[in-house]
Design a protein around this nucleic acid. Structure first.
Lengths: 279, 279
DNA sequence: TTTCTGCTGGAATATTCATTCCATTATTGG
DNA sequence: CCAATAATGGAATGAATATTCCAGCAGAAA
């Protein structure tokens, strides 16, 4: 095996794509055939086995291996990883970023790499939510909240920034709300006044804060309607919810982006105000 | 093998998802664990091997097979096919995304139009910041904050969600910080202990809260270093700043997106922790 | 408490799969 | 036209993977 080629194996799909296009003209017949097929059917390459891809592309499995090796990969499997990563839409980790940078010969400080990671996670969260969001659920949530006498905002720990923003925005917009902020351990007292004319907006992500869960439970028991914003249908605040808004945020180095959640929070605040204002 | 079960194996992801949700409550412990993992991490299930998925979900590979069979599949591989099919359908191509947007736009409710507005503002903010950010300033900010004994987080009103998030994150990461939250009007008392070994991170946007401005002033007077995150060089917290991070957020209906600011906040928290941790 | 049923973990097995190897076929240069 | 080199097809190999099986265990019923 020629180790010299190994170094140049692209790690991200765009680089690989560019390289394939660049070298396609100089490739032998069967390899060119693979090149065309791979770029035309990236999903097949990502999901298929060497045998199945070979059959679709009308070459031998061994040709696929050679193709991969001619681009510096160790075998077909390594090449396939790049095609899969593209579909996965995963934010590259800090280590992968460094590796990619090294390949491109550029340098950035560690701080800036981290920043880029979070910016990318933000973009991915928004893009993902845009295509996968339950648009109808948002409408129902706005309906429900607009009809409530008072909106109780429940969100602790990492969700607290969201609810505190909503409290600020709703206050500005004249929407009656109570921010359950658990200052001085008074959360249950704050939520104790909730009634059947009211609604609770609960926000919680893994690992779900116990207090949020129990607050939602008691709000439900007191007859309030519940809107839950959470990350899973199996979240403990999903079951008691009248309306469920599911948000799968991308994360970087274990820290969840909150961009999509924040956008939803803003939209809810403004839409509820508009609905109430005779919109 | 019981053929009776084979007939009910769902062929599309949505049906499978619904079935899993429906039956989860009656599922044995480990199988329920798989159910939660699978729906929360569909991408992993689609791409991984039985062994890798099992490890992530903290079960045995055989449990995965049992799980699949309990839903009428022949084995894990068949179940995986459904998860892969889902990814094939959800092509994240840009053109399709725009097309889908346009289709949504026609029939979208008012609430969803508002949501789209905020999502767009988020993307615009991030894109704008990405190209125009002062990368060097970020490095200097991290340096400065990493050297501080205690970091005072100053941000009121709409900036409070950001500082409260940073306080949460830094707390988790073991970075000594004080959130100046002005509860009970105690802001100046909280900030009164700041000294020349400390640093203040101030966040403020138009219209700049008076209290934030004066807090920054007194922190400066007491010898603390200042990092300001704001929207303009002419902001009242720009002048006293040792490091200035300028963020021009896009806004929708008068509400500024906070996505870029949030990403910077997360990056600062993590980068400072990393620097301190001997990175 | 005892028995029984069903769940779970982990090793053993069988299958699928990527890769390698080599004989054969095409292509290029003299 | 011939020799030399590269490319190709396809079978053989070895690794990785899913699946099966069984013993041990936990929880429910008697």
């Amino acid at each position: 095996m020629v180790d010299g080629e190994n170094a140049e194996a692209p790690k991200d799909f765009e680089t690989l794509r560019a390289l394939i296009i660049e070298r396609r003209a100089t490739l032998p017949k069967r390899l060119a055939q693979v090149a065309i097929y791979a770029l035309d059917n990236p999903d097949e390459v990502a999901f298929g086995t060497a045998a199945s891809v070979a059959q679709s592309a009308e070459v031998q499995p061994s040709t696929l291996v050679r193709f991969a090796q001619s681009f510096g990969f160790q075998g077909f499997s390594d090449l396939q990883d790049v095609f899969r990563a593209r579909l996965r839409e995963r934010v590259p980790s800090y280590d992968e970023r460094i590796e990619r940078m090294r390949q491109h010969g550029i340098t950035a400080s560690r701080s800036n790499l981290i920043l880029d990671g979070f910016l990318e996670a933000t973009e991915q969260s928004v893009a993902g939510f845009r295509s996968g969001a339950d648009r109808d659920a948002l409408d129902r949530a706005v309906d429900l909240l607009a009809q409530a006498h008072t909106i109780y905002l429940i969100g602790l720990r990492r969700s607290f920034p969201i609810t505190s923003y909503m409290s600020y925005a709703m206050g500005k917009l004249g929407v009656r709300n109570i921010l359950v902020d658990a200052v001085a351990g008074m959360a249950s007292e704050q939520a104790g006044f909730i009634g059947d004319k009211d609604a609770a907006l609960a926000i919680s992500f893994t690992p779900y804060a116990n207090e949020t869960v129990s607050l939602v439970g008691s709000a439900k028991a007191r007859g309030a309607r519940i809107v839950s914003v959470t990350d899973s249908i199996f979240s403990p605040i999903s079951a008691p919810a009248d309306v469920l808004i599911e948000i799968g945020e991308a994360n970087f180095e274990g820290f969840r982006s909150m961009a999509a959640t924040m956008a939803v929070a803003m939209a809810l605040s403004v839409a509820v105000a508009a609905r109430r204002g005779g919109g």
